[in-house]
Amino acid sequence: MSDPAVRLSGLRKSFGAVHAVTGVDLDIADGEFFAMLGPSGSGKTTVLRMIAGFETPTSGTVELGGADVTRLAPFERDVNTVFQDYALFPHMSVLDNVEYGLRVKRVPRAERRERALAALASVRLEGYERRRPGQLSGGQRQRVALARALVNRPRVLLLDEPLGALDLKLREEMQVELKSIQREVGITFLFVTHDQEEALTMSDRVAVFNEGRVEQVGTPAEIYERPSSAFVAGFVGTSNLISGEAAQAVLGKEGTFSVRPEKLRVTGLGEPVDGAEHSATGTVSEVVYAGPATRFVVELDAGGRLIALQQNLQVSSMDVMSLRGTRVRLVWHRRHEFAIVS
């Protein structure tokens, strides 16, 4: 087994009395597309900055490909960063921006030009070489920042909220594009995001951050289907908790359990329930029509509330809106409910 691309051991960082990172251990494999997901202030960006070398850890180590780089300056590390604000040099052309790292490393002129043009082509920006960053759109700037980092063929590419400044449409396009670029170049991508959907759709594995620690590491499916804590369940999707007396009444067991909204079926009270299924009755208190799907907020008779997401396959907005206030039965398969460790 070769050394992981990135290994963080016992990583901590405090700014005065503020403990931004309180003990992070992570192994990120070569060629992995890895997401660090968490709310703002959860320490994910600080971890990224410690890997890049912009911050020095209070304690713990950062290893890149087996070598300890904890005390090295950014320019001594084989990583490159795509900054949240892109940080393109405004006084240089697009080509000069992309060539910057190669020029610093004294790559001969001809090779430099060739590699920069290839990098710009890989992000579909041929013909923009002479432009200034100020003359580009947000999406184009983002791709220049990507080309400027990738052209150096770093061991690890760090991306700090790379799509945060883009509008929804562009963001969805770039999600697909980033993924395909990563597959092409085969470089380890490590990116920070607070957008759970972005983390789930793009990455091979996700680390969920909360209050300076990693709550859970796993594939998107593991994180979503089997969240290990109430925080993960709540941050990645809707938590839908059943606990206390309601858990006793509905499930017949002690503890806190969760079912994802799309796993629930909204049926009439008289519908038959399979032996492999659980069900609970309640009253629809709120109906939120969202185009392709509708969200039902159901107050359970046993206590607590569940949110159910139903695709609008056969129904119109009129049909679903009329369901407010009606009594329903929520049905789900037992294997879709999971216990939450508190």
Binding site: A52, P74, F75, T81, A87, Y100, V104, A149
Partner: peptide
């Protein structure tokens, strides 16, 4: 930071 990140 970007300049340092790119090796300068």
């Amino acid at each position: 930071e970007a300049a340092g990140d790119l090796g300068a």
